[in-house]
């Protein structure tokens, strides 16, 4: 029997892996992948609870919104990463420490 708890536990594992990637990775693109993991864990929870709202489909609708926002955020973040590389010649977040040169 597949219960809600199974979905939530899988989401929790994915969230923890995303937290680790955001904190430990020294490469902005991998940090971005970690953020996508965190967003996907949230979407998994929304979808799992959305099963219990047949009338208004709130969980699934907001999962759609979250997917769209994640796509837009990825596009902007990649553009920013390319610009940071152009200016600093590195995409290590630890080395990018000046707002203005």
């Amino acid at each position: 029997m597949i219960t809600l708890t199974n979905f939530l536990l899988i989401g929790a594992g994915l969230f923890a892996i995303g937290i680790y990637m955001v904190l430990a990775k020294r490469n902005a693109i991998q940090v971005l992948i970690g953020i996508e993991f965190i967003l996907n864990a949230a979407i998994l929870n929304l979808v799992a609870f959305g099963k219990y709202d047949k009338l208004y489909n709130s969980g699934q609708t907001f999962a759609l919104f979250a997917i769209v926002l994640a796509g837009a955020a990825a596009a902007v973040a990649l553009a920013i990463i390319l610009n940071v590389y152009k200016q600093y010649k590195t995409i290590d977040p630890n080395k990018v420490e000046k707002l203005k040169d």
Partner: peptide, 29 residues
């Protein structure tokens, strides 16, 4: 993850996940 969304009976979200993430975000990366 898209397969798990199908198990939560959210097939439209699963298809959107594949289209937006695999077709959009990953190709962009």
């Amino acid at each position: 993850l898209a397969g798990l969304y199908v198990y939560a009976l959210a097939d439209f979200v699963a298809v959107t996940q594949i289209v937006v993430y695999v077709g959009g975000v990953l190709v962009l990366m």
